[in-house]
Write a protein that binds this DNA or RNA. Structure first.
Lengths: 215, 215
DNA sequence: GCACTAATAAAACGAACGTTCAATTAATTC
DNA sequence: GAATTAATTGAACGTTCGTTTTATTAGTGC
């Protein structure tokens, strides 16, 4: 046999990406074999090499696109307001929504950094640092404006990101808590953690921020 | 050649454990080969099988002992006081100190769960759940006593543990912040996060708790 | 110093790995 | 409908894997 009826390059590539994210998240990059991935897609292992030259290229592509998506999502969600409380609320909401929607891809991006070559690791970390810097800027602005009470901006940013990203470890949609409930709770925990005082801004596109502070 | 001069079973086994924790933390369990581990110890691969019947047995032993150590450390650090603020402060201090001291082992225990067989995974998760339950109990007691303001006890416990454990990702001893500074910051963030009111207890063995609340 | 045990080396096992290559067939173009 | 291109198979390559077996040497007890 050779080319199969109905075979389509674009569809196969998409199926490979999807199956790879799922398998790597579940088994780990090293534990997933190319034959296993091919079987999941319904194809022979050799066919994978039409789309990704090596196994590591596949991993890198998945991670890069995940990080690009995260930065793009934040770019779209970033509020126009200068109020640090509103900006922080938007950051938390975007972060949680994005990561819960892509649990598997997040797992891959967080756990498989060590499987990348040095230069590719650097590329991914650059994107990650840029994303974290956005949060540090919000915290610093809030601190300078007297809206937050924070010991150390960098440490607080890491603690918040760690706390928020951790949601993918235990959260399962359709269980005890809804996404909205979880987001509301994380918002109020975040606002208390940074010692936010109540925001006096009139425009509040993110209605939960006020609530969070009040709690 | 065979037995080498100065060879000692106990010393070799200890060297194997130490090298394995370090290698698995750095490379991942699947990526570390038994030959690589043996080379690190300065021995042939076959010699490892005198101490651990399989590679997975080695991993499981490391993880089980890590979790046992964590539970034992908390058992020793657990304060006699009934004050939830004091108990929470002790939990945070113990958690951070234990995990920073054993960064590599913590990495292994958190990242390699998927490499365990089903029944061994269950064993480890049972210990982990018991440890997390201690925190949930403290939070619930504090909530009922009116000392904390918390949306959801379970969710808050997970968020706190995620935040605290995350310290091993970025903290390096001897850099910008000292262990004491990091611990103090995490304590104040924790107390604010749970909405702790000032503890009125007279006995305060963990002096930082009061400070944390005050911040 | 002789028997015995502990600790290791050396070599080999079959299986699985990532990857390559040539052959083959489906779809597309003209 | 012939020529061309796209997509895939099946077989094979050399390497490495976890593990086992056997032999050999260092230390220990008497």
């Amino acid at each position: 046999m050779a080319r199969t009826t109905g075979s389509d390059g674009e569809k196969t590539e998409a199926a490979v990406r999807e199956a790879a994210v799922s398998l790597i998240a579940r088994l780990g990059y090293q534990a997933m074999s190319m034959r296993q991935l091919a079987a999941e897609v319904g194809v022979q292992a050799a066919a994978l090499y039409r789309y990704f030259p090596t196994k590591e290229d596949l991993l890198f592509t998945l991670m890069r696109e995940h990080m690009e998506g995260l930065l793009k999502a934040w770019g779209a969600a970033r509020p126009a307001s200068a109020d640090p409380v509103i900006r922080l609320a938007a950051y938390v909401e975007n972060h949680i929504a994005f990561h819960i929607e892509r649990r598997h891809a997040t797992h891959v991006s967080n756990m498989e950094l060590r499987s990348l070559s040095h230069e590719r690791l650097t590329q991914i970390l650059k994107m990650r640092t840029a994303y974290e810097k956005e949060l540090r800027t919000i915290l610093r602005d809030g601190l300078e404006a007297g809206a937050f009470e924070i010991d150390d901006t960098g440490l607080t940013a890491m603690a918040l990101i760690q706390m928020m990203t951790g949601v993918i470890v235990w959260f399962r949609p359709g269980e005890r808590l809804s996404l909205a409930e979880v987001t509301a709770s994380y918002l109020s925990m975040t606002m208390r953690l940074v010692g936010a005082t109540i925001s006096h801004s009139t425009a509040r596109p993110s209605g939960r921020a006020g609530n969070a502070v009040a709690l």
